[in-house]
Nucleic acid binder design. Structure first.
Lengths: 164, 164
DNA sequence: AATATATGTCAACATGACTGACGTAAAATC
DNA sequence: GATTTTACGTCAGTCATGTTGACATATATT
């Protein structure tokens, strides 16, 4: 039987390298989200609330359907967390000026405070990782992660990420 | 009022850079998992099953508690998916030889096939991103993601990731 | 012999996703 | 002006996956 693991088999090395990259992403994402989750628990909010606060914070005045498009969840799913956030005064809605069917979303003062608090934890984690890794590594991180985004939507997503 | 967004304010640039890095991670992870989820749906398996198959595949003979430690979920949670995988013949348990309380976990032939199938989708995605980004970028990706892993456990996790 | 550990299991519950159906107001189109 | 489409909300039921807490069983360790 052929020794697939032979050191000189470039295909195996490639596969192993890819498997490691995949696992690395799993562990990094797990620990990356852990800090924010901890803070949110004090408010009885979960990751779903966080995502709403994050994206509304970065796109003040965005509509509900824009948010749905980013999150890729159903409106019923969104509605549960969104109406909760509104009821508890972290997010507010204003009728669209041009199209009055739209509900434009904004963070309240309270919402902005929470966003800052949670974001800070994550930013500090990423800042440390960036500092340790160095500028070239950061550029590489960006390149690779960009390449992981669904090609069909990559441009649109990247415009959203880098625009605000 | 001070213009916090002034182009010459390095603090703002830093914060914006970090926010973009965070969002990038969110979108990349979302799309990275989408492909695997699709395949798993055909088997009526979810992400939880995938994680078990992945880690058992990469650590044949690992014990239940090792797996629990990696996944950071409760044994009750694990048990639901694990017993399902066993019942359906994708994973098997063997009593530990040294410590007979332990249940060592292995993929069956069927399990290995599924693991390959799902892994392949993800590996192709990552391979494309790596190819587009280039070798230096890949090194940077690894450095940064490693830095995102909880410092306390980083060495242990990295040994696990790179060992097998 | 007593205690600790590895695992399994029952029961109840929370979160956040889903589908499907239906309603309402406003915009767009015929 | 009537009709259709769009943006959003909502009710109802389901599913996947996580949680706590309590308890059982076999095996190791002390």
């Amino acid at each position: 039987m052929t020794d697939v693991k032979s050191t000189n088999n470039p295909l195996f090395l490639r596969e192993e390298e890819l498997r490691q990259a995949i696992e690395l992403l799993f562990f990094a994402y797990r620990d990356f989200t852990a800090g924010a989750d901890q803070v949110l628990k004090d408010y009885d909010f979960g990751r779903a609330h966080h995502r709403v606060i994050h994206f509304v914070g970065r796109n003040e005045g965005m509509t509900v359907s824009e948010l749905l498009d980013i999150l890729k969840i159903t409106k019923q799913s969104l509605n549960r967390v969104l109406s909760n956030l509104i009821k508890r005064g972290f997010v507010e809605q204003r009728q669209g000026e041009e199209d009055r069917r739209q509900r434009c979303l904004f963070l309240t003062e309270e919402g902005r405070k929470l966003e800052q608090k949670v974001s800070r934890v994550q930013r500090e984690l990423v800042a440390n990782a960036f500092r340790e890794a160095g500028g070239d590594a950061v550029a590489g991180y960006r390149k690779v992660l960009t390449g992981l985004i669904d090609e069909e939507q990559r441009d649109r997503v990247m415009r959203r990420v880098t625009k605000p």
